[in-house]
Design a protein around this nucleic acid. Structure first.
Lengths: 343, 343
DNA sequence: ATGAAAGCGCTAACAA
DNA sequence: TTGTTAGCGCTTTCAT
């Protein structure tokens, strides 16, 4: 039993370990980081033992200061209560964790001012990269390019000047959804569309593509928030008018959920009186009553791509846009058969 | 126009600012931190100008290393896809932000092993405190007390040895819910209960309290996960038997959502054939079809309390338990009138 | 294979 | 009121 008890107060540092193991602090570093210089196996064992005995934990702040990397990524979402963003956050976190990064997840609550503030705060905390699911189309992006922190924009439909982007081909997805409704014989397909944020125009365009290709006159359109509440209000308004639609395409699962509620209150049955299809493809759509037909965003793949972009920064070259293809999942809400629920 | 351009590469540091403003680095610190020593207004203005011109941002890692505080809190939740935890996360984030703290939010996916790992990783990142909404009842808590990081357990029904706890009086809430169903004339109230995690026993106990006080025989009980899927499976099973219940109490909003779906598939109407009440009181319950009667957890107040506990550590004294009283929100799913939706 | 030591950017005690 | 400076814990270059 040698001396070298852990210090009475304060944290155990690398030099406590070094002293206990009878080596230099450099060697402790080599052991902890498995490099960059080799260490004799016997020495390494002694060091590991010292670490265990003393309960040593490396100080991440010191390491970050020294290396210039916190191994943290920032993720900004408009609202974590939206299952799409919840799923995205989970996927991002998992991918990041696999690569040794932690994720600082923050909520902009769809507020551009708050969004800006949060981005600044992430930068101040020295995150190694920022993923932004932005509310707005322009301003925050400017910040991003002048930030000196790698950034990627998530949920964008198309590329952006000066930033990497990752998104889904929302136009094609929306078009497929509406074409499917037309295939069911509907000739008046209303659109419930988000009032801001990325990909709104694309979804609207896809809806137009399909209605026009199908020779339909443009159906009614309501612009509202991406929430349950938005969908509820929109559906209520759509069916208050004189010529209600026979089908509904909602730009988010959440909006469709709200619409289902409104339709129920109006005594309209889905899909008999009104067919419904939506966009996102989260669990919430799977378990809605009736199960919602929905355009599934490949959240995991988008998350992987975004994280990879940040942690393997490409040298030079123009910013890139990755577009993923969404898949239409059909279900009873448009008159198709139910799909099996995930286990 | 003096010299002192920002350094060609690398970050602008406090000494760049000091040089530009013609002061010492200490003064820059005093200005940035508004203390601890006073600075002449003229000097402060010059410093602020320098900060602006050079685009200086304090390095959080260096500050953390120096002060021993990262001003970050960790929040561990079992699943961010559950709206209860999403709401909790938002509330925690807001309270923390107000006090100058950021929140590292992580997902344990209800996996005890992962939960442990995440807690360790939060400690390694030097968070100033940890909030844990734990999956399990015992083991992780042990970790917590030996962690040398302030911790508080969220979503607990009662106090715990050695840790601060914050929770809801789930037993009283469950009892109120079930008594309400009995008041509607139901004499066979099934319980769909979570299979692990905090507060499970309390909810079960509250259900028992009510059925026994009402002179009912104990209804059927299904133990399942806290998810939509769990509720769906449980309801399916409950109504496959010979003597189905006339009412259902589910231990989470999500379970109730799943149950609604199952009931619909079985051709049972709510509340005519089966009444449903659940626990949590999230937005999801508000917008379900039909609107769910639910026991609302005061998420914001619990979050406030948890954050406050961590950032204002009390000296000595035994750990404390804060219990909040939930409120029963009635709605059509049990036969009451709909409640107005939040704006 | 290992050790000594510089220095990352910041805060605050001490000096002036 | 302001300046000087030690040192937080770590990584890594340069010696040995």
């Amino acid at each position: 039993m040698t001396s070298s008890a852990p210090p009475p107060h304060g944290q155990v540092t690398r030099s406590d370990v070094a002293r206990y193991a009878g080596v230099s602090t450099a060697v402790v570093s080599y052991v902890v980081n498995a490099g960059p210089r080799p260490v004799a196996e016997a020495t390494a064992t002694r060091v590991r033992e010292a670490i265990r005995v003393l309960g040593y934990r490396p100080n991440a702040s010191a390491r970050a200061l020294r290396t210039g990397s916190t191994r943290m990524l920032g993720l900004v979402v408009p609202e974590i209560g939206n299952p799409l963003f919840a799923e995205l956050a989970v996927a991002v976190e998992q991918t990041a964790a696999r690569l040794g990064y932690a994720v600082l997840l923050v909520n902009s609550e769809s507020d551009p001012r708050l969004e800006r503030h949060l981005i600044q705060s992430l930068v101040a905390r020295q995150v190694d990269g920022i993923m932004l699911s932005t509310v707005q189309n322009g301003s925050a992006v400017v910040d991003l390019t002048t930030l000196a922190v790698p950034a990627v924009l998530l949920n964008t439909f198309e590329g952006r000047e000066g930033v990497d982007t990752v998104g889904v081909d929302a136009r094609a997805g929306a078009r497929a959804a509406v074409e499917h409704l037309i295939g069911h014989g509907h000739d008046r397909v209303a659109l419930i569309i988000g009032d801001s944020g990325e990909g709104v125009e694309a979804r609207e365009q896809g809806w137009l593509d399909a209605t026009r290709a199908g020779g339909l006159i443009d159906g009614p359109l309501v612009r509202t928030s991406f929430t349950r509440r938005g969908g509820y209000d929109a559906a209520t308004r759509l069916f208050a008018g004189p010529r209600p639609p026979s089908a509904l395409f909602a730009s988010s699962d959440l909006q469709a959920l709200g619409a289902l509620r409104a339709l129920d209150e109006l005594g309209l049955r889905v899909p008999d009186d009104v067919a419904v299809v939506c966009f996102d493809g989260t669990d919430a759509a799977d378990f809605a009553t009736p199960q919602l037909s929905t355009v599934r965003q490949p959240v995991e793949r988008m998350a992987d791509e975004a994280v990879l972009r940040l942690v393997t920064p490409r040298e030079g070259g123009p910013p890139r846009h990755s577009s993923f293809v969404p898949a239409l999942l059909t279900g009873p809400s448009c008159g198709c058969a139910a799909r099996p629920l995930d286990a």
